[in-house]
Design a protein around this nucleic acid. Structure first.
Lengths: 122, 122
DNA sequence: ATTCTATTTAGCAAATTAGCTAATTAACTT
DNA sequence: AAGTTAATTAGCTAATTTGCTAAATAGAAT
């Protein structure tokens, strides 16, 4: 369960253009990066990419992207798994589910008419 | 429809403790603030509050809260309506619906198995 | 017309963030 | 064990953010 601090961290992580683009790319899958380049059909992690291949998509130095990824990992919106000497990056779907649930609950509350909204068109 | 810049603005607005708390209070309804104090049953806007009453909940100066609210309004997560000389603040549910939809789509995409997730437990 | 209430704007200081390069660490390959 | 590849850490600067107080504006009430 995400507490307030967790949620703030998530929104902060997504509230920056560079990180949002990284997030978008990781989640919409702009990459293909296998564990074993000689056998790409084996053990491929769709979406999951290494730091370098993500950095290549941006006009920023590698350490800059590395720091952004660390922040996203700390916010639990991505997971980073070291395999051999590469780090594979993938979406953290559990967190996304929780965030989705938060907004759904919020909307549902208003849909159910619990709260009256002011009509500022009149 | 929210474009990328819109979404980043929304997440930035929510990625700060003070603003998140304001948001939380506005959305979960910690206030009751009528247009006409002598007739609270008439024209009451549930949830909607004025800047001062929100500021009272925080240990920050009024202009600080005012600036935070402006940022939240610019991000379209709240609406501010001037009535007489007070400004009433209320959640912007349309935006919340759109954000909820974004996360739902994201989650659905993964639920439907379009993307394989790496099992880092093995 | 003056005063009061509600809010914003301006201008400032401190803290944080986001970028960089250079150096370091970790792990594989030869 | 030396070299190569992948990524992080350290230390720096510039830009942005977040707070403040004082002053200004807008509207209502006296």
């Amino acid at each position: 369960m995400l507490n307030m601090e967790d949620k703030i961290k998530i929104f902060k992580a997504l509230g920056n253009k560079t990180r949002f683009k990284i997030f978008k790319n990781i989640f919409t899958g702009g990459y293909a990066c296998s564990i074993d380049d000689t056998q790409p059909e084996d053990d491929i992690i769709a979406q999951a990419t290494c730091v370098t291949s993500i950095a290549e998509q941006f006009n920023f130095a590698l350490p800059t992207i590395s720091r952004h990824l660390k922040e996203m990992k700390d916010a639990k919106i991505i997971r980073m798994t070291k395999i051999k000497n590469k780090i594979y990056i993938e979406p953290n779907i559990e967190t996304m589910k929780e965030i989705a649930e938060c907004f759904n609950t919020l909307v549902k509350k208003y849909e159910s008419g619990v709260v009256y909204q002011y009509d500022n068109t009149k």
